[in-house]
Simulated scan of single mutants.
Amino acid sequence: MSVLIGAQDLLAALGSDQPPVIADVRWELGRDTGRADFEAGHIPGAQFVDLDRELAAPPGAGGRHPLPPPEVFQQAMRRIGVSNDRAVVVYDAANSLAASRLWWLLADAGHDQVAVLDGGLAAWTKAGQPVTAGESEHVPAGDFDGRPGQLGQVDSATLAALIDKGEAPVLVDVRGAERYAGENEPIDPVAGHIPGAVSAPSMDNVDADGRFVAPKVLRERFTALGVDGDAVLYCGSGITAAHTLLAMRSAGIGGGTLYPGSWSDWIRDPDRPVRTGPLP
């Protein structure tokens, strides 16, 4: 199954004998409006998933959005009808930043039939497809049995040790360039980036409509930055780094390691090095 699916292909899948589970993960940092947006209008049959409560643990050790406890994630997936042998399609409002978190968590747990709706709900409505209002309809519980740890991830202590020894792989900072440079930090208390990281803003993965740019363009961009399957990706709190891993998969680049705690976890230790400004 491709990691991306278009609106027309999703419509066809919904009309098949084995329709996918549809998960709505609309979310914006600092705005708890996802459920209200869902109830105002969503893809028919979709189930709302709360990113802050079901796809992340409370802020603290591990940063602003630590990975959720496996039992919490498994319960959430079963609630919306996910089973190991049933395809899942995930979407958000448009640019797939939030949807990528659920894609990564499911893939990391061993689910091999997960796709993100390219362009999100905006692409669905632009294609003339209907939406429905109200709460999630009741669905039979799924039997999803996750096995977290199937994808590469690294913690802060391991990464810091690799940097100290000069053995760190390519580090990729996917936040906006101004946050990477330390020119503007609207969220975390310390500005800058992890030493040695290259800047590759996640929003460069998509066009103005929120759709991922062509695989060839993505491959050329990643190659120019030295980003390959051995790279470690981080963002502010582990959400948008998954977006760039999804972009890598759509471009045919396997591998890639997620630093789930990302910048918000790195700066919890004041002894960890920080750099500002562009790389030489």
Rank of each mutant, 00 (worst) to 15 (best):
M1H: 11
A7R: 11
A7W: 07
P19H: 03
P20W: 07
P20Y: 11
V21D: 04
V21C: 00
V25T: 15
D32W: 05
R35L: 14
A36E: 15
F38D: 04
E39W: 01
A40H: 11
G41Q: 09
G41L: 06
I43W: 08
A46W: 03
A46S: 07
Q47T: 03
D52R: 08
P58Q: 08
G62Y: 01
G62C: 08
P66K: 13
L67T: 09
E71N: 13
I80T: 10
G81M: 01
D85E: 14
A87Y: 07
V88W: 09
A93V: 08
N95Q: 13
L105M: 06
H111I: 10
D118R: 02
G120P: 06
T125E: 13
V131L: 03
A133L: 04
E135H: 05
P148D: 13
L151Q: 13
D155T: 13
A160S: 14
P169M: 08
R175P: 01
R179I: 03
R179M: 07
A181T: 08
E183Y: 03
P186W: 12
A191M: 12
I194T: 12
G196N: 10
A197V: 09
A200V: 14
A200P: 03
P201L: 10
M203D: 14
D207N: 15
R221S: 00
G238E: 03
R249K: 14
S250A: 14
G254I: 03
T257V: 14
G261D: 09
G261Q: 00
W263A: 02
R268P: 04
P280E: 15
